[in-house]
Simulated assay, not measured.
Amino acid sequence: MTIAPSVLRTFHVSKAHRGERRIHPGVPRPRPTPGRLPRLTRMMALAIHFDRALVTGRFASQADLARVGQVTRARLTQILNLTCLAPDIQEQLLHLAPYSKGRAPLTEREVRPIAAEPDWDKQRNLFAKLTGKTSGPN
């Protein structure tokens, strides 16, 4: 009598609609990190998206973009002013860590005065003070 080789297969079971279970081949996808993405991170991404839409000519003016985005022109200006931040500050804002309890560690209102400063070195110093980090040699 010969014994057939055994077959090993990796699978996982997930819940579907109304408690139904489904079997999927392979290993399950990792769950996203718990917590919420800071609003400031989402606003920075939106500012870059809006700026790109204006530069490429998708919208003729900020007023058109504000109308389509369903925000006031003043609010659109506040959002777009985030693109005046130094590139390294923008990158830090885009990579803020998610948080799960309490308020966000940084708010847009706190960053607005920094974006109004035209000198990037001064922006970096102000941002370092805001976040509690020490700035580099200046």
Rank of each mutant, 00 (worst) to 15 (best):
T2V: 00
T2Q: 00
T2L: 00
I3M: 00
S6D: 00
R9M: 04
T10C: 06
F11G: 10
H12L: 07
H12R: 03
V13N: 03
V13I: 15
K15R: 09
K15Y: 11
A16K: 15
A16I: 06
G19L: 13
E20A: 11
E20Y: 06
R21T: 05
R21Y: 04
H24K: 08
H24E: 11
P25I: 07
G26F: 11
G26V: 07
V27L: 14
R29A: 14
R29M: 13
T33F: 11
T33G: 07
T33E: 14
G35Y: 11
G35R: 08
R36L: 15
R36F: 15
R36W: 15
L40Y: 08
R42N: 11
L46W: 14
I48H: 04
H49Q: 07
F50E: 12
D51N: 14
R52I: 06
A53H: 09
A53S: 13
V55H: 10
R58M: 10
F59A: 12
F59P: 01
S61E: 07
D64T: 05
A66H: 02
A66V: 12
A66E: 04
Q70G: 13
V71W: 03
V71P: 05
R73G: 10
A74M: 14
T77Y: 11
I79P: 05
L80Y: 02
N81M: 12
N81I: 03
L82M: 11
L82Y: 12
C84I: 06
C84H: 15
L85F: 02
L85N: 02
L85Y: 01
P87C: 14
D88S: 09
D88K: 03
D88M: 13
Q90C: 10
Q90H: 04
E91H: 14
E91V: 14
Q92R: 08
Q92S: 09
Q92F: 08
H95I: 01
Y99C: 04
S100Y: 08
R103E: 15
A104M: 03
A104R: 02
P105Y: 02
L106D: 01
T107F: 13
T107G: 10
E108G: 07
R109Q: 15
E110P: 01
V111H: 02
R112C: 03
P113H: 03
I114V: 05
E117F: 02
P118N: 01
D119V: 10
D119L: 10
D119R: 07
D121E: 12
R124K: 13
K129T: 12
K129W: 11
K129L: 13
K129R: 12
T131N: 04
T131R: 02
G132H: 06
K133L: 08
K133M: 07
T134L: 13
P137G: 09
N138Q: 14
